[in-house]
Design a binder for these strands. Sequence first.
DNA 1: CAGATTTAGTAGCGAGTCAAAACTATTGCA
DNA 2: TGCAATAGTTTTGACTCGCTACTAAATCTG
Lengths: 190, 190
Amino acid sequence: MIISTRYIFTMDNDIYIRELINRVARLDATTAWQQDLNPAQRAALNYLARANRFSCSPSHVAEYLGSTRGTISQTFKALVKKGYVTEQRSETDKRVVSFHLTDIGVSVAAASNHVSDGVSNMSEHAKNNLMTSLETLVRSLITENGGRAFGVCNQCRHFESRKNGGHCTLLSENLTALDITKICHEQDAA
Amino acid sequence: MIISTRYIFTMDNDIYIRELINRVARLDATTAWQQDLNPAQRAALNYLARANRFSCSPSHVAEYLGSTRGTISQTFKALVKKGYVTEQRSETDKRVVSFHLTDIGVSVAAASNHVSDGVSNMSEHAKNNLMTSLETLVRSLITENGGRAFGVCNQCRHFESRKNGGHCTLLSENLTALDITKICHEQDAA
DNA sequence: CAGATTTAGTAGCGAGTCAAAACTATTGCA
DNA sequence: TGCAATAGTTTTGACTCGCTACTAAATCTG
């Protein structure tokens, strides 16, 4: 009797947690559509909100999100049409384009929803635990997948602190105070 | 200058946590394909592994996962073809079908992957925190979406404890020791 | 410095997802 | 008995997303 196997089986916690994460993401995705963004578009938008100005091209987003250039290109096309991002071709290398949030894009990226509301109801302690656990998880997944976790500018070995910001010795660029808190695709942990 | 808005914007933690959850789910999805299951199929499979024998029809799965009967029907068709579940038509009500895991289905549902591995490396304390946080989140999402969170059999007001199991006063069915730890779509918290 | 190679991005195809609506079969109700 | 409700399936259509092929720009090399 095939069905009987089901009664031998109990799910262990590690797999249950995996399921929970996917379930939250799934429920989130259904409500995310209320802001007329699909999950991929939202992910790209959120990335832009946290990336510095050197890390906003389709390639970078594709690498960060574990997707492909072609897919991200389409995603951005949709986001441009919706008015959430603008395209900007590089002066120095005419192959590369950068996408940047518009004012509306910023507000959409910052908009709360059921998930963020649920999180905001947690205690600070619980929030911090959740955040560090998830960060650990992401880091381990990225390295397992052979990817490189993009880090934040001011924790990079090419970073030099300056008054009101810093300087990147790799790109020879000066950085504002806000620049240095953002994700950089060149980041190499100090 | 449109781009300047970007520099005014810093993401708050609640939204960051939402992004982290989605990112883990996204990374998980790409690796999940290695077991030739898409996210929806995996979710359905995992649900079956945790549901009791009265809660394994397309309608129940659809309600649990926040999907539709039609979609779930397709999902199960794929799972049957892959040999992970079997279909069983009810004797008492010839409209209803139940799907149950096969031996292979059980092993696939229980198989670990990068996410569960990542979780298993955490301390017991961190794991428990993560689990309860995510459960809280799921519960609040479900109720916000107007859904009903399915609970576990032995925490139901129709549940009566018996030696080596229990009894359901609603369905008038005897329950094995394993039955009573599973999800029931009729569950009404005690 | 001309030609080959690499790199960034885009276009289009095609397999696949998933929700909505239409449909069938069965059951329950009046 | 007929009408409504319910369970499931099928179909349709919009959309996703990876893959391949392609263009343009930059870089490397003999």
